[in-house]
Simulated assay, not measured.
Amino acid sequence: MSNRLPVAVVGSINLDLIATAERLPTAGETIGGAVLSEQPGGKGANQAAAAARLGGNVRMIGAVGSDGQGQRMLAALAGAGVDTTDVGVLPEPTGTALIVVDGDGENQIVVCPGANSGLSLDRVEFGPEETVLCQLEVGLPVVLEAARRSKGYFVLNAAPAMDLPAELLERCDLVIVNESEYALIPALAEAKLVAVTYGGDGSAMFVHGTKVAGAPSAAVTVANTVGAGDAFCAALVLGLRSGLDYERALAVANAVGADAVGDPSSQPELAQLGHYVGRTAAALDGTR
């Protein structure tokens, strides 16, 4: 675990505007008494920050606007230990996510992509030892181009769910989705390796549609679920690339996700990956 695994995250960088309310509104309903906060966010940036805090050697490939929000997002990534050299600064406004979170930590999200829509890989190269991690909050053509250019291990967090080209799925060494996304993308049943999260019911690994491993979730007080899936993705990638087997990697990622759920931030503070490996080892060995 001592080597810092190289990871390139290609994805979105957003300012999260979060309204925390007692419950989520229904259509046409206004709810008062909410508390507003602003945080660094975006699935790409969240995953990059998590991977860096877990101990990866991480660079972010994305785009922000030439505005104050963009500078804040860059500073937040750098503060987490992420290399931002390959983040473009564009004339468009920085991407923004409008998020409502209820008392149980559940959320509704609307994303305004802004500068994320202008992301280009024109001068980006990927090394053969570099793991490339993408999501779908940037344009599908950009994700396809990243998959074609990647020389090593390629991971897709297929969120938000959409139909995926066969070429992209065939290139993926690993796809990560939640239970809803897995149901919405039938083609994943044929993918070579898919990790699925089930919230409080843990996570599982599937090879060509057959479940080959699973791990339970940890009980935790929920503060915010916005960044939990992103932290899970980062931990699972680093765990697998560090040589953990499927069951242990899932257990470690579940533990990281649990810590993220208990933190109100979309880019929570996390311990090094080795801490979570040690924390889960005794529990796993006790079940064998």
Rank of each mutant, 00 (worst) to 15 (best):
A183Y: 14
G199D: 08
D122P: 04
V132Y: 00
A159F: 08
L184C: 11
E179D: 15
G103K: 10
N178K: 00
Q135E: 10
P160G: 06
V142C: 03
S120G: 13
C112P: 09
T197N: 05
V138F: 05
V194F: 07
K192N: 13
E145A: 11
E130W: 02
V194P: 05
S117N: 14
L168C: 06
G103Y: 06
A189Y: 10
D104V: 10
A183C: 14
E179A: 14
L188G: 00
L184P: 04
A158N: 03
V155N: 01
F154C: 00
G105K: 08
V101P: 02
E167W: 11
P113F: 06
V155T: 08
V142W: 01
G139F: 08
A195R: 01
Y182F: 14
L121F: 08
V111L: 04
A166S: 15
S150G: 12
A115V: 01
E130T: 09
E129A: 15
A159K: 09
I176S: 03
E130V: 06
L184T: 12
G103I: 11
N178I: 07
R149G: 04
L144P: 00
S120R: 10
L169M: 12
K151N: 11
G103S: 14
N107K: 03
A146W: 04
Q108R: 15
E179W: 12
G152I: 01
E167M: 09
F126T: 04
A195W: 00
N178C: 08
L188V: 03
L121Y: 07
E145M: 08
G114F: 01
L188E: 02
N116G: 02
A183W: 11
A187E: 12
L193N: 13
E106Q: 15
E125W: 14
C172Y: 03
P186D: 05
V155C: 03
V124D: 05
E170G: 11
E145G: 10
I176H: 07
V142E: 00
A191H: 00
T131G: 06
Y153K: 07
P113S: 05
K151W: 08
E106D: 15
L133I: 10
S117H: 13
P186R: 07
E130S: 04
A147G: 13
